[in-house]
């Protein structure tokens, strides 16, 4: 291919230069916009000055990620002891505790501490009955309106998918729980609401839910606020994505299998194409 190579190479340099300029321009734009976005947009009087960043590490991240089952169960204890007063967990059922290595009898016992609505009886009445493992965790409120009326108009969101439903994923819940602080100078916090450095808009309707020793762990771990934050976050991460371990471990095996198969396919391709020479 001799004739066009010189012209091609002459034009290749300016063509490449154009390409690189566009790429650099795009990179500059991307950089600026990230800086803007991270700040949550325009700074206001309520923007916190010093936001403590707690870089927590989670065992379920990474290629071999898995849940700390003991921590997740402690997180369940935190949830049922504090959060469940206002927040529902509609996709969690007691039998899910088996994933956290809780023995069947213990699960039955835990379920039996709760009541759910039974099927209508012969007189057509809907009466409460003791929950069994196949039941879903009961909601503290009958419906959204009831939830709002008791919580100053704000509906405490269901927490089953909270870890997947926010841009900061598994760091959202711990950041909120950690984020309560004094409002900066000039920031007015309405009556009945609180200042939270990590909540979008900084004004949250939820009172700080955790304090040291708010609950007592069954396994005797000291229930410091940080411990409870870590545990309940682990639990909620599990509830949002119970199949994470299966996904990562199965996925790993399939990727390895496919890598080997792809290499074999490549060698086969090369072998087949050798016939052309």
């Amino acid at each position: 291919m001799g004739t066009q190579s010189r012209i091609q190479s002459l034009l290749a340099v300016p063509a490449l230069a154009v390409k690189r300029t566009v790429q650099a321009g795009a990179a500059l734009l991307i950089g600026t916009s990230i800086a803007l976005a991270a700040g949550g947009g325009e700074p206001t009087v309520c923007t916190p000055k010093d936001v403590p960043h707690n870089d927590r590490h989670w065992g379920f991240q990474g290629i071999f990620g898995h849940y700390d089952k003991k921590a997740a169960f402690r997180g369940f204890e935190v949830f049922r002891g504090t959060c469940a007063a206002c927040h529902s967990l509609k996709f969690f059922t007691f039998r899910n505790l088996a994933d956290l290595d809780v023995p069947e009898d213990a699960i039955k016992g835990i379920a039996a501490e709760y009541e759910v609505m039974a099927e209508p009886n012969d007189d057509g009445e809907v009466l409460p009955r003791t929950a069994i493992p196949s039941d879903y965790f009961p909601s503290p409120f009958a419906n959204e309106k009831a939830a709002a009326s008791v919580n100053g108009g704000a509906v405490p969101p269901d927490l089953s998918l909270m870890v997947k439903a926010r841009a900061s994923f598994e760091n959202h819940v711990p950041n909120i729980l950690d984020g309560y602080m004094d409002a900066p100078e000039g920031c007015e916090v309405p009556e009945g609401k609180y200042y939270n450095a990590h909540y979008p808009g900084y004004i949250i309707s939820m009172a700080p839910p955790l304090a040291d020793d708010a609950i007592e762990y069954k396994d005797g771990t000291k229930a410091t606020k940080e411990q409870m934050i870590k545990d309940v976050s682990e639990f909620l991460a599990y509830v949002a994505e119970p199949k994470l371990e299966e996904r990562k471990s199965t996925g790993f095996k399939i990727v390895i299998f496919l890598l080997i198969l792809t290499v074999l396919l490549y060698l086969t391709k090369k072998q087949v194409w050798r016939k052309l020479h």
Binding site: K248, G251, I254, V255, L261, T262, L265, T268, K269, V272
Partner: peptide
């Protein structure tokens, strides 16, 4: 067999990436 095997190889590369994304960054 030339392009059938080449397509299969390409499929192998594709599936490897596809499964890796599903396993580690599905959302």
């Amino acid at each position: 067999p030339y392009y059938t095997i080449k397509d299969l190889f390409g499929l192998g590369v594709f599936l490897t990436i596809f499964v890796a994304v599903i396993a580690y960054a599905p959302n």
